[in-house]
Design a protein around this nucleic acid. Structure first.
Lengths: 128, 128
DNA sequence: GACTAATGTTCTCGTAAAGAGAACGAATTT
DNA sequence: AAATTCGTTCTCTTTACGAGAACATTAGTC
């Protein structure tokens, strides 16, 4: 068990938040939260889950079991195709070709969003 | 915070292990571990990390933050939309509408694959 | 440079609960 | 039915969580 304090601290600073803000959001005393970052006190499981949601990371990341901030739904487009692990859809494995399709589509979505800042609610109907 | 006891129990039973075996491996008393499964006692973070390693799952799984035992590149379609964590694309957050689009498209891909067992290499061009 | 405000750190203390160990209960085997 | 195995529950001790206040430190203001 090493480093969850550092993780919390860097996550908090990355969001430009004070200990007071975070502790109040978590419903604990400022001194209590300071104890977490100083790592002479351990948050309860409830608090751990809260911080994961609050900072939008996995509990594994806070506990230093992974270096990836969130290991669900986030990977670079490079990783997306080259990833060692297989991707699935409701248990059905996706082929590399499927992945390329999806990648292509996602980039379309992102590009449009970036440009127009507008959701393309029709793109799905015009698919097939 | 709900269900980590059930998770531990099912993981233990899936491995055909007794409480005595698991508790000894974790270096705690049998009654202590029983408290975890009955959920009237919470494991420390060290113990949580131990169980994740011992049962080869993520801490997020034990804490019921995901329904998938390994949380990279695998989630159910239900989780896909309802997940508490935000999804991103190369750092750009995806809105819920984006997710619905993606879900719709993915289901198309899977359905076509299932029926024809053939990749639809053109679907991407006909998009926009 | 002193004054103030804001943020972070370090005390002490009460209390909740983690953890142990033994006893108990239920189920299975011999 | 005696013995063994596995799970549950009891009581007790001790740990440490969490709070609140005091203290320290930095930053901004006059």
């Amino acid at each position: 068990m090493i480093g969850y304090g550092e993780r919390l601290k860097s996550l908090r600073l990355a969001s430009n938040l004070t200990m007071d803000t975070v502790s109040k959001a978590a419903g604990i005393a400022k001194s209590t939260y300071a104890g977490y970052e100083a790592e002479f006190r351990q948050p309860s499981l409830e608090k751990l889950v809260f911080f994961a949601d609050y900072f939008q990371v996995s509990t594994d990341y806070i506990l230093c079991l992974t270096s990836e901030q969130q290991n669900i739904g986030k990977c670079s487009s490079k990783d997306f195709l080259n990833h060692s692990k297989k991707f699935h859809w409701d248990g059905i494995p996706l082929s590399h070709d499927d992945m390329k399709e999806i990648l292509c589509f996602l980039e379309e979505v992102i590009e449009k969003n970036e440009k127009s800042n507008h959701k393309l609610a029709e793109s799905c109907k015009g698919l097939s």
